[in-house]
Amino acid sequence: MHVGEGSIRERLAVNLRRARTERGLSISELSRRSAIGKATLSQLESGTGNPTIETVFSLSRVLEVAISDLLDATPPAGPTVVRAAEVEALSGEGVDLRPLRRIEAGDAVFEVFDQRVRADRRQDSLGHVGTEHTIVQAGRLGVRVEGREVELGPGDYVAFDATLPHAYTALDGEVRSVLLLQYRADQRLHLADTSDGTVDTP
């Protein structure tokens, strides 16, 4: 996942338009399926909206595409260094996500995020494509997946089918963790690039 080119809202504007067009959906139909207002979708596609975790994950679920297909810019050549202070966070009710990198290996695609669950907060998700992997670095994290709950501490790991409803809760202060989202090749939109390396817009 390359995050150094443009803001999250700028990249989402380009990629959301592309994904919606690829799926043959009007803004009205996407609004109906995602329960996101047409005005909000129009703002997101024009780059003037304020995307949240809930919005982006809802769009990922409805469009059946990886998060990185909505947030990525064109990948750079050579080594990639991501400085924490330079990465814009995508925030939700209880979580701040900083996209760090997309890794493609054969048919598998992984997205790596720095995930922070704010103290005494909960982040709910209706589900989205992919498999979710979380490794706790600091704090105690409550994870609920379709009614089953587990508690994780530093060094603990959990994985589950991300299409299931799930939630993260910070149980004792802020939780710092690494989130990896794993996708099969058929769960990605495969946005085409133009010959000059820029993303081709419809």
Score class of each variant (00 low, 15 high):
G24D: 03
R122K: 14
P99K: 01
P51H: 04
R18C: 01
V62D: 01
V117M: 09
A77V: 14
R102C: 04
T21M: 14
A84I: 04
Y168H: 11
E29C: 12
A13G: 07
R11S: 03
A35W: 03
G24M: 13
Q115N: 05
P75C: 01
D193L: 14
D200E: 15
L171A: 06
N50T: 10
M1Y: 11
V136L: 01
D186G: 08
D200T: 14
V129L: 15
A170C: 03
L71K: 01
T169D: 13
L141G: 00
A35K: 15
E22I: 13
D172V: 03
V150F: 08
R9M: 05
E88F: 09
L63Q: 03
A108M: 14
R83L: 14
K38P: 01
G4W: 13
R140N: 12
R188K: 10
F110N: 00
R11A: 06
T134M: 01
R102F: 02
G106K: 09
Q137W: 07
E132Y: 06
E45I: 08
A192Y: 04
A85P: 00
D200A: 15
V87A: 02
L90R: 00
L180H: 10
K38T: 15
I36M: 12
G106F: 01
R184G: 15
E151V: 12
L141T: 00
V150M: 06
R121T: 12
G153V: 04
A170T: 00
A73N: 11
Q115D: 03
T40I: 10
L59E: 07
A39L: 04
A162K: 09
E29K: 14
E132D: 11
T80A: 12
H2P: 01
S125V: 03
T55M: 15
G155M: 07
R148E: 13
T52A: 06
A105R: 12
D124R: 14
S7Y: 14
R176C: 07
E22F: 09
R188V: 15
S46E: 08
I27M: 11
L71P: 00
F113H: 09
V109Q: 12
V14C: 04
R184S: 13
E10D: 13
H133T: 03
V199C: 09
H133E: 12
T21L: 14
G197V: 12
A159Q: 13
A35C: 07
L164P: 00
P75Q: 11
I27C: 05
P154V: 07
A39G: 07
Q115F: 03
L126P: 00
D107V: 07
P79L: 04
E151M: 08
P51K: 11
L30M: 12
E174Q: 08
R20F: 06
T40A: 13
S31N: 10
A105T: 09
T134W: 01
S125Q: 11
D196A: 08
L70C: 06
L180T: 15
A108V: 07
L181D: 03
V178W: 11
R18I: 15
R11C: 04
F113K: 05
